[in-house]
Each structure stands twice: as structure tokens, then as C-alpha cells.
Simulated assay, not measured.
Amino acid sequence: MTTPTFVYDGDCAFCTSCAHFIERRIPSRATVVPWQFADLDALGLTLAQVEQAVQWVAPDGTIASGPDAIALLLRDAGRFWEVPGRALQLRPVGLLAWPAYRWIAGHRHLMPGGTAACSLPQATRERLYGS
């Protein structure tokens, strides 16, 4: 792998809307891909990891999750985006970022573009809607 990969939940409309924003507005070198279409084994990721949070996989195989993944995506974009990316990695901000990320992830079905399916674990989605 020569470029980083940013992995998100493609079954979640809110997450997909955020990924489309990234692709349109944030000039990262990363491949932005829903985990449902990613080769998780090749990326070194587990189903549990991708269900819990977005993931950043660096070309060297280093993995970051949640706000840490978002910080690396922003830093990779450079210029204007590097400032919020670095800020997100500062200790006080990072300590607040994880609880905020978990709250948003737990309530993503209520966010703009979210759907009821966003609140369900993958196993439940598969049982209800098929794989």
C-alpha cells in the first residue's frame, strides 16, 4: 500500500455523507472506502474495529481510530487542514475528542442524513436487511 486508507461505515447515511464531504472538500491522499467494500484482512483491521470507529491505515500499516484517524486525515491534507488536525492531537483536545466522538457515533442515527439503520450493530443489520 502506497497511500493511506480511511475506512468508514458505508451502511450509515451520516457516515457516508461525512465521507462524501471528505472526498469533495479535504484534499487528502487517502483512499476513502466503506469497510463493507474494503479488504479488512489486507488492511490489518477487524470487524470489531470498523464497527466501533472510523479507521486510518497508514502505508506502513499503522492504524489509528476515531478522532485520531480524523486528525491524521486532516494532517495528510496539509495547508489549512493541518491546523485542526494537529489541534485534534493535542492532549486536552484529544481527551475531549473521544467522548464527543463516541457520543456522535452512538447518536449518528439522529444526525443530519442519519437513518434508523445507523444505530444498529452490523450483525443486526444483516439479520434484518440481509448481507
Score class of each variant (00 low, 15 high):
Gly113Thr: 02
Arg25Val: 06
Gly66His: 00
Ala53Thr: 02
Gly106Asp: 12
Ala42Glu: 06
Trp81Met: 09
Cys12His: 10
Ala97Met: 07
Ala38Arg: 01
Cys18Ile: 06
Gln52Cys: 01
Arg127Glu: 14
Ala87Pro: 00
Ile22Cys: 02
Leu72Val: 05
Leu90Asp: 09
Phe37Val: 04
Asp68Ala: 15
Arg75Met: 15
Trp81Asp: 03
Tyr8Lys: 02
Ala13Asn: 15
Leu73Gly: 01
Tyr101Met: 10
Gly85Ala: 11
Gly10Trp: 00
Tyr8Leu: 09
Trp98Val: 05
Ala53Gln: 06
His107Val: 01
Trp35Gly: 06
Val54Arg: 11
Ala71His: 04
Asp76Gln: 13
Leu88Ala: 12
Thr31Tyr: 03
Ile70Trp: 01
Arg127Trp: 10
Arg79Asp: 13
Pro4Glu: 04
Cys12Ile: 01
Ala116Thr: 09
Met1Ser: 13
Tyr8Val: 06
Cys12Phe: 08
Val7Gln: 03
Pro27Tyr: 02
Ala116His: 09
Cys12Ala: 08
Pro92Phe: 09
Gly94Arg: 14
Trp103His: 07
Pro84Asp: 07
Ala71Asp: 03
Thr115Pro: 01
Arg91Val: 14
Asp60Thr: 04
Arg79Ala: 15
Gly130Ile: 02
Asp11Leu: 11
Val57Gly: 06
Pro84Ala: 12
Gln36Gly: 13
Leu47Ile: 01
Leu110Tyr: 00
Glu126Pro: 04
Arg86Leu: 15
Val32Phe: 08
Ala123Asn: 06
Pro27Cys: 06
Gly78Ile: 00
